Computed example of a mutant assay.
Amino acid sequence: MYVYILTNQTQTVLYTGVTNDLTRRLYEHSNGRGDVDKFTGKYQTDLLVYFEVCPDAIQAIAREKQLKGWTRQKKDALISAFNPTWQAIDLETWAG
């Protein structure tokens, strides 16, 4: 299971999610960019800047809820520690 954070081109919006298949979920987000009825479509959040692996769904959901409760400043610090340049992560080439 994965907990992940997406942002938009201007890094003004963060979206936190959980999935069991990060590659598939990123594909779904990028294909839903035009769907303004959904958060990721409305704010064009399809750039992966952070992710972590959790051993099971219960822990992943708990971590997602924890991150969603954090301030923007705390989330920014987490992302910067993991991905200092905030470059969009390509899962096929990411060396972390």
Rank of each mutant, 00 (worst) to 15 (best):
P84Y: 01
D56L: 01
T19C: 09
V18L: 09
T7K: 02
Y27L: 06
S80L: 10
S30L: 14
H29C: 11
D46I: 06
V36I: 14
F82Y: 08
P55W: 11
G69T: 06
L48D: 07
S30C: 02
D35R: 08
S30D: 13
N83Q: 12
W86R: 06
G32H: 05
L22T: 05
D90W: 06
G34T: 02
V3C: 14
T85S: 12
E64C: 11
E92N: 02
A77C: 08
V13C: 06
Q44E: 09
S80W: 00
L22F: 04
G17E: 04
I89R: 04
A88N: 11
E28M: 02
G41D: 06
R72Q: 13
N20Q: 06
D76E: 13
I58G: 15
L6P: 04
V13L: 09
N20E: 14
A88F: 00
T19E: 09
V49S: 05
K74V: 14
L14R: 09
W86F: 12
T45F: 13
R33D: 12
I5D: 08
P55I: 10
R63A: 03
A77K: 03
T7E: 07
E28N: 14
I58N: 13
K42I: 11
Y50G: 00
W94E: 04
T93I: 06
G69W: 08
A77Q: 09
D21V: 03
T10E: 15
T19L: 07
Q59D: 10
G41Q: 13
Q66T: 13
A77W: 01
E52Q: 05
N8C: 05
T10W: 11
R25D: 00
T12H: 05
I58W: 05
A81W: 03
Y43Q: 07
A88W: 07
V18P: 08
S80M: 10
W86Q: 04
T45E: 07
W94I: 01
P55D: 10
T93D: 03
H29L: 02
K65C: 01
Y15F: 12
Y43G: 03
D37M: 14
T40P: 00
L67K: 02
V49M: 04
G96F: 09
D35P: 01
Y4F: 15
G69K: 09
